[in-house]
Simulated scan of single mutants.
Amino acid sequence: MSLMKQRYVLTQSQKMMVFILSMSLYGLSNMITELIPEFRFGPIELSVEYFAFIPLTLCILFHPLYAAVGASLGEVIFGEIMLGQFGGLGELEKFLAFSLAMFIAGSLVRDPKNRRQVGIAAITGVAIHQMISSMVDIGKVWVGIEELEAVPGLAESVVVIEGVSFLNDVLFSGILFALLPTMYLVPRLYGKIEPLLGMKPRDNKMRYSIGQILGPRVIVLSIVAACGAFIAEFMAESDMALIEWDADFVDTYGDWFIWVSIGAAALVALVTILVMVSRRRNAGGKGVSHG
């Protein structure tokens, strides 16, 4: 068995726990960001894009694929569908881009106690996600399916506007809500949270080359996912969303309805954690499986 396979061996139930925990926690955090106001200083907009440290931490400590996909699905379920908004293929672009970015970030870390590795992975994940989003937006304007939205104080160039937005998101949200919290949490949680899933922390003494981490299969899948994100967004903007739902419960019932989604995500997260703790207690002195 290869080193990569040894590194991420989980039972199906453990994978499901990682998936649901990531889905609920990130869905919860995503709804909380909706309540945080935005601040604009000329062409610079300071807003909390997302609390990326949650999926980043789970991707690094556990299985990067299941944690990444779970987080992306959590945003769709709790941030879109439960609020009566679903953009069809437009949501697929967000799903693929974010899943890809978090998966790559989680795969880059070989030693969770190494803050340098964790920091590089965290900021890389945010940069990949924002880069894909910026390239999609630039492509939509160049192709002509979306008009340029000028920003006061900036040249009327989509490249300049998206470039400033990219730097703003990476340097503000990326550092404050991804890099710093992830660097703080991962080394401290490593070895403590894993037993909740009934598995041992992965061996941080094992070393992997970049070729082992980002092999041909991962690179090919990354390219396919990125291309899929581009195509999905272009189709959505061309009125080919296929499946689209717009009940907009917030407009219908008021801003308080956001708390319904927050409550649902919190409940799922709480139940998941309780199940994890219960499974750990039931295991008792039987020991834990290797992960």
Rank of each mutant, 00 (worst) to 15 (best):
M1F: 06
L3H: 08
Q6H: 09
Q6S: 13
V9R: 01
Q12F: 11
Q14V: 00
M23E: 08
S29D: 06
N30K: 15
E38R: 12
F39T: 14
F39N: 06
G42D: 13
S47H: 08
V48Q: 01
F51Y: 12
A52Y: 01
P55W: 02
I60Q: 01
H63D: 15
H63K: 05
L65R: 04
A67P: 07
S72G: 06
S72M: 08
L73K: 05
G74K: 07
I77S: 09
I77M: 11
F78C: 05
E80H: 15
Q85A: 09
L89K: 07
K94D: 11
F95V: 00
F95H: 04
L96P: 05
S99R: 04
I104W: 03
A105E: 11
V109M: 07
V109S: 05
R115F: 05
R115N: 06
R115K: 12
R116S: 02
G119N: 09
G119M: 10
A122S: 08
V126E: 00
V126F: 00
Q130M: 08
M131S: 15
I132Y: 01
S134I: 01
G139Q: 10
K140Q: 11
K140W: 00
G144E: 08
I145L: 14
V151K: 13
S157G: 14
S157R: 02
S157T: 10
V159T: 12
V164F: 15
F166S: 00
F166C: 01
F172D: 00
F177T: 01
A178N: 10
P181V: 03
T182H: 03
Y184S: 04
L185N: 05
L185W: 03
V186F: 02
V186W: 03
Y190P: 01
I193Y: 01
E194L: 00
E194F: 00
L197D: 09
G198W: 00
D203F: 07
R207D: 14
S209P: 13
I213W: 07
G215N: 15
G215P: 03
P216M: 11
P216V: 12
L221D: 13
L221V: 05
S222H: 02
I223E: 00
G228N: 08
A232W: 09
A232C: 14
A232L: 13
E233P: 07
F234W: 03
F234Y: 11
F234G: 10
D239W: 10
A247R: 03
A247S: 09
D248W: 05
T252S: 09
Y253F: 11
G254L: 09
G254Q: 14
F257L: 05
F257R: 04
S261L: 12
I262Y: 05
A265R: 04
A266Q: 09
L270K: 14
L270G: 08
V271Y: 12
T272G: 07
V275F: 10
S278Q: 07
S278G: 08
R279H: 05
N282K: 14
G285A: 08
K286L: 11
V288A: 02
V288W: 02
G291A: 11
G291P: 06
